[in-house]
Design a binder for these strands. Sequence first.
DNA 1: TTAATTGAAAACGTATACAATCCTGTAATC
DNA 2: GATTACAGGATTGTATACGTTTTCAATTAA
Lengths: 237, 237
Amino acid sequence: MSMTQQEADFASRIEADFVQNPVYTGVEQAILEQRLPPGTRLAETDLAEFYGVSRTIVRSGLQALAHSHLVTLRPNRGASVANPSPREAREVFEARELLEPRSAREAALHANRSDIRALRRHAQEEHDAMSRNESGRALRLSGRFHVMIAQIANQRTIAGMIENLVSRSSLIIALYWTRSSTRCDESCHNALIDAIERNDADEAEELMRSHLVELHSALRFDVTDTSNLTLKDMLSQ
Amino acid sequence: MSMTQQEADFASRIEADFVQNPVYTGVEQAILEQRLPPGTRLAETDLAEFYGVSRTIVRSGLQALAHSHLVTLRPNRGASVANPSPREAREVFEARELLEPRSAREAALHANRSDIRALRRHAQEEHDAMSRNESGRALRLSGRFHVMIAQIANQRTIAGMIENLVSRSSLIIALYWTRSSTRCDESCHNALIDAIERNDADEAEELMRSHLVELHSALRFDVTDTSNLTLKDMLSQ
DNA sequence: TTAATTGAAAACGTATACAATCCTGTAATC
DNA sequence: GATTACAGGATTGTATACGTTTTCAATTAA
């Protein structure tokens, strides 16, 4: 399969630049695995030393992360891991509830054998991570599962939006998650794969919708973790 | 109205960094007004000289524009104005058709007097630009109108997505637009404001939907304008 | 004439230097 | 004792230097 130059651009050219930035990939993965909690300060010199690059590369990576809403940049005050507000958290899940059920429907209509195999392999990896108590890795893989479905749906523009919303969900879960276990994920994801394999679009759409409502309802915005807030933050409320 | 630190972050902190980058704002506006056609090469030194800044600032601005899909970066080959493929064009309009009717509905439910005044003032500016034959400015203002509605809808996350899709639409229109006049915009936008002012959610949603379908159907992907493509682009198809 | 080669100029990628700003701890003042 | 003023250090912002890659045109060979 050959692509036009335009198609190649559309597919990967923009991301390619950041994928090979060790700061971008490293910090992103650490955030998705909740090893870097919201609010953590990201000093340029520290990152430069850790990744063995100059501050030029660090700043480029941090700028890319800021565009993804994973990092907050404040002029003359540097970068820190984003600290999504209850409002932002609600909005991100509302947007997911709008976009992802339709993606699941389209995925059920488009998925081929190789897509199903990849989804089952991925679900197994997720399961393994959970049983080995690697909860950070499990969370990242769980998000990745949603992105895979969006990609199978064959609408790259919307898939990109979903990828971004899923990433931000890791921070939201770190701040507002109340349940102890994500056991729900495992059965939900398997049921979703089954529906997609059967090309049952209605069922896939409904399973995705209810899965997201389930996740959303497990967030508690009233019990805000204030440990990362300064006095000024609290006073300005 | 007071905001928490988190809320302030969410509202404007990330954008603030690029809004004061003259390369970002200047090139963005030029693209939205179609003064920079798709494929135009953006040499760092030229931009640095034009805006009177160092290449550091230029690269930062170009990186931000690449994230917005307005510019394409290719390693070791620099930046050029994005050249959206027919597929990307279709996807952008499909995404708009999914997001914007709902935004129009929500805007109809949330709009207050000051919102309506701002929309009418904006429509007047659009009209003036058209009658003065400033078609680039008119196109940018027309896109801005859609963003304003998304912002009134009070869902910033989705409004941000729509803002991005609207920006990309300027490039898509530059490449694939067939009709000579955008007369439709004027009456469509006025009818939309009327529906929003009446808080007629159903009507606003339907008007937005049909307006977007109208725009989408005026795109012709078979008559690709090849004047901006290099030989290599054409051969690799 | 065409195609391949090659070398200089231009452009990009990264590191670093220096300036501007912010932060923090100490001392002075009330 | 609490608050402010200030100095030094730390951190970020921007420009620039330099190495590497690409581009392009002149040259040469087929």
